[in-house]
Amino acid sequence: MEPESLESRINRATNPLNKELDWDSIDAFCEQLNKELEGPPLATRLLAHKIQSPQEWEATQALTVLETCMKNCGKRFHDEVGKFRFLNELIKVVSPKYLGTRTPDKVKDKILELLYSWTLGLPQEVKIAEAYQMLKKQGIVKIDPKLPDDSPFLAPPTRPKNG
């Protein structure tokens, strides 16, 4: 079988025509970015683009991919997400000065929830905490989001059982 590019994998994992989350494609994207030398920087660029989609379902799927990769991929990916270069792309989506006024609330809430969970789960990524504090100072985060009951960072997202 031909190896697929990260780009074609993210397109499949976030396809707006998907009826439900396509876990096989999400996992395949995470696995592949770990294998490639330039996987993490390329993956974060692709994810940022999808997260900024005006289509709520496409953005939601991209956020699930991001969340899953943060849980399953290693430090190389964490370090890439922990750069302002990527964090700024998330900030743009929630900030009314950028795309925030036309972003669905569900997408904004999910981004703030993810950022907050990473400040707890990855305290060594100091830029994530700095970005989150800035959003608080700007009044974009009013109170810390309530995280799901399972562990805020380490537990994988709930996924349906196959079959």
Partner: peptide
């Protein structure tokens, strides 16, 4: 050196 200059170029979005 590359990493250092990347670090210098990595700024939080102006708000």
């Amino acid at each position: 050196l590359g990493e250092e200059s990347e670090e210098r170029d990595d700024h939080l979005l102006p708000m």
